[in-house]
């Protein structure tokens, strides 16, 4: 035993004295990779197989015949819910992302200045992000947006003397966008705060000396230095907001009608309300394809912007 470890020590001494210094014995990651393959890649391959078959769990006597690409063709050309669901998904992602981005930036700018109790305020502002999504929906549906007992309609009616709004009935998608944006605002706030720490003081000072107004300072001096932070935040925000499910489930159940049915929610409905397993698998694969396309587009967009900046910087 002692001899073996002695031998290992000699080997490592020899290796580490070489310039690369890293002993290539990379097997430590194999359990993790195997686990991820088993739990994500294998089910995904199975989803592809399922998507090529017609299988309704409520009608097992029909079997699961091979139908080729019929499930995909049905969604694209015959299903009246598919395209609206895709549209709602886009509206939710873009709307919530834009609102959270603006609100998060404003909060970050407010909390970047030296004010008493700043540390506590930053913590407090983080809370909406940590609130369990189903509780988030509970709060907004019953306590904030309810036409009879909600605080917003009480404020509108009693204080501003405006007619009450049945938010979840008449503006359902807007309401879901608001809930989602509320949850993701602290994320953008944190990212922008982290970015503001890296903004070069010298450039800011130079801007002040040149007499830039606060808005000019932000848009011309600070914002261009936060590019990378916004890129990462937008990319990850898109990926996470796309997956919004619990809030829709609890606040609207995809309704009224299909007004708040997004692609993930529709996949759930087809799978666990209609029990059309093959079709739900096809919807899931559309979701993956969409996620890949959007992520690629964004990475490319950001990359080309980065190149543009460097090109501009050249004389």
């Amino acid at each position: 035993m002692a001899r073996i470890s002695g031998a290992q020590a000699t080997v490592s001494v020899r290796r580490s004295s070489s310039p690369t210094a890293r002993r290539p014995r990379p097997w430590l990651h194999i359990p993790a990779v195997a686990y991820l393959v088993l739990l994500t890649q294998v089910p995904f391959l199975y989803a592809i197989w399922l998507s090529l078959h017609s299988w309704n769990l409520l009608e097992p006597y029909l079997g699961k015949p091979f139908v080729g690409l019929h499930n995909f063709a049905f969604e694209l050309f015959s299903d009246p819910t598919f395209w609206p669901a895709l549209g709602h998904t886009a509206e939710l992602v873009v709307g919530a992302l834009a609102a959270a981005l603006i609100a998060g930036t404003l909060l970050a700018l407010l909390l970047d200045r030296p004010i008493p109790g700043r540390g506590i305020l930053r913590l407090v502002a983080l809370i909406p992000f940590l609130v369990t999504p189903s509780v988030n929906a509970l709060i907004w549906k019953n306590l904030i947006l309810s036409p009879s007992f909600g605080v917003v309609d009480w404020f509108l009616g009693t204080v501003l003397h405006l007619p009450p709004v049945a938010w979840l009935a008449n503006l359902p998608l807007f309401s879901v966008v608001m809930m989602t944006a509320w949850q993701w605002t602290p994320f953008f706030m944190l990212v922008v705060l982290a970015g503001l720490q890296t903004v070069s003081d010298e450039i800011v000072e130079a801007g002040k000396v040149d007499g830039a107004r606060p808005t000019q300072m932000f848009f011309r001096v600070v914002l261009p230095q936060l590019g990378k932070y916004y890129e990462v935040a937008i990319l990850l925000g898109t990926i996470f907001i796309f997956q919004t499910f619990g809030k829709i489930f609890i606040a609207t159940s995809g309704g009224p009608g299909i007004a708040t049915t997004t692609l993930p929610y529709y996949t759930y409905q087809v799978a666990f309300q209609d029990w059309e397993v093959g079709q739900a698998a096809a919807l899931g694969i559309f979701g993956v394809a969409l996620a890949i396309v959007v992520a690629r587009l964004m990475v490319q967009l950001f990359a080309s912007q980065g190149e543009g900046e460097t090109a501009d910087a050249l004389p």
């Binding site: 089910p43 995904f44 989803a47 796309f242 997956q243 499910f245 993930p264 698998a281």
Partner: peptide, 10 residues
């Protein structure tokens, strides 16, 4: 980052 909805059925 794969949408969870894609693997829930399998």
């Amino acid at each position: 980052f794969m949408p969870f909805a894609a693997i829930i059925v399998p």
